[in-house]
Simulated scan of single mutants.
Amino acid sequence: MNIIIPVSVAVVALAFAVLVYFLSRTLKSLQLTLDNVAKTLDGLETQMTGITKETAELLHKTNRLADDVQSKADSLNTVFTAVQEVGTSIRTVNQSVRKVTDKISAGADHQSENITQAVQWGNAAMQLWEKWKMRKATHELEKERHYE
């Protein structure tokens, strides 16, 4: 029985040595993995810093562009207002021309009636004049016959 204790201690020592060996390999592998993670995080941090700077620049450019677009849109508002005023002026002129045209048409219709009446009176007067001239000529012929 004397031999069992030293063999047991030797087996335990050997098992402990194997455990320590595999544990050290696992820890070594874990350290390499953590070193890679740390390097990756450092690279990511550097990239994030660059992305943050680029994003800030892009945001500033976007704000300047938005301000520029807004100022140009404001400038266009005055153009649209001017065009609207021109349209209103043209509409007013058209209405005025339409009123004048209507008055001229109404006056022309009235004048047309007056001219028609004047022509009719003129024709009637000419017919009376012709009849009067014919009667006078007839009357003079009768006088001459009467004297002969």
Rank of each mutant, 00 (worst) to 15 (best):
K61P: 00
L34C: 01
I90R: 09
Q95A: 15
D109V: 08
G87F: 09
K53L: 07
L58D: 03
S89G: 08
K28N: 02
N36R: 10
L76W: 02
Q47M: 04
E57D: 11
G87Q: 09
N63D: 13
T101P: 00
K72D: 01
Q111N: 11
V86S: 11
T101W: 03
S71Q: 11
Q95T: 10
S112A: 11
K39F: 06
T92I: 12
G43Y: 06
K99N: 15
L65T: 07
K103I: 09
D102R: 11
N94I: 04
T49C: 00
V79H: 04
L34I: 04
L41C: 00
S112V: 06
G107T: 12
S71M: 09
G43E: 12
N94G: 14
A56E: 11
T55I: 06
D42R: 10
Q31N: 07
R64C: 00
A38D: 07
E45W: 01
T46M: 08
S71P: 00
T46D: 12
T78E: 03
T55R: 09
V100D: 09
R98S: 14
S105N: 14
H60V: 08
N94F: 14
N77L: 09
L30P: 00
T46A: 13
T33L: 09
L41S: 05
D35L: 03
E57C: 00
A82I: 01
T26S: 08
L30F: 09
H60I: 02
T62N: 14
V83G: 01
G50K: 04
R91W: 02
L32T: 04
L34N: 08
H110A: 09
E85T: 05
K53T: 06
Q84E: 06
D42M: 05
E45K: 14
T88Y: 10
K28R: 04
S75E: 12
A66I: 04
T55G: 02
D67H: 09
N36K: 11
D68F: 07
L23Q: 04
I104A: 13
I90H: 10
T40V: 03
A108L: 15
T78I: 02
E54F: 01
S89H: 11
